[in-house]
């Protein structure tokens, strides 16, 4: 350890935070190096004097002056909701609660599309819509026999009306959302509107 490296360790040595190896090396150097002895002595005295500087104390009227100023300020602007938050709701609870609420709302929104009478709903809608198309085009007969026959009906209808169903092929997979998409297309593509709507 040279003299410059010694200086870098003055504070650690002064505060007794050097590890054992560094401490040994530091003290060995300090023992034979007069320059470092002198510098460290000055360092120690300077820091000690600094630490013993007299404390500045507040004047007797500091607090009363401050209170006077604070009385002119708005009282700590702590809203009711903020107080409620700090008092009752820890961030962990808030996070869990928020997550549960999001789940609940999402569940309520998605329920009609995924469960319950979804098949019936689609079949009914499909039947009614296709029936409507059929009434006007007189080309297709809709049966209540299920999705497959309806799909065939729609295919016929498409050919007859000369419209394009970009999403039609997807209905083969039988996913409810895709069926719904097809139904919308059909319902607006009647001979009356000419597929324009």
């Amino acid at each position: 350890m040279n003299c410059l490296q010694m200086e870098e360790n003055f504070s650690s040595y002064f505060e007794d935070t050097l590890d054992f190896n560094s401490l040994q090396i530091f003290e060995e150097h300090l023992e034979y190096c007069e320059a470092c002895q002198k510098e460290y002595k000055l360092f120690r005295e300077s820091v000690s004097e600094l630490q013993q500087l007299p404390q500045d104390v507040p004047s007797p009227d500091f607090l009363s002056t401050l209170q006077q100023q604070l009385s002119q300020e708005q009282p700590a602007a702590i809203s009711f909701w903020r107080r409620l938050y700090t008092q009752f709701v820890t961030p962990k609870w808030a996070l869990s609660g928020g997550f549960v609420m999001v789940l609940a709302i999402t569940g309520m929104f998605l329920y009609p599309f995924n469960f319950g009478n979804v098949n019936n709903t689609i079949t009914d809608t499909l039947s009614k819509t296709t029936q409507s198309v059929d009434d006007k085009s007189n080309s297709v007969i809709v049966e209540e026999s299920g999705t497959q026959s309806n799909r065939q009906t729609l295919r016929n209808n498409q050919t007859h009306l000369g419209t394009t169903f970009s999403g039609f092929s997807h209905t083969v997979s039988g996913k409810p959302m895709q069926r719904r998409y097809v139904l919308k297309q059909v319902s607006y593509s009647t001979p009356v509107t000419g597929g324009g709507l």
Partner: peptide, 21 residues
């Protein structure tokens, strides 16, 4: 934060000297 102004006065008493220093 709950509205006890005296609590703030106590905080000032505790920290005024080191702060001024």
């Amino acid at each position: 934060q709950k509205g006890d102004e005296n609590a703030f006065t106590l905080l000032v008493r505790r920290h005024q000297q080191p702060l001024i220093n």
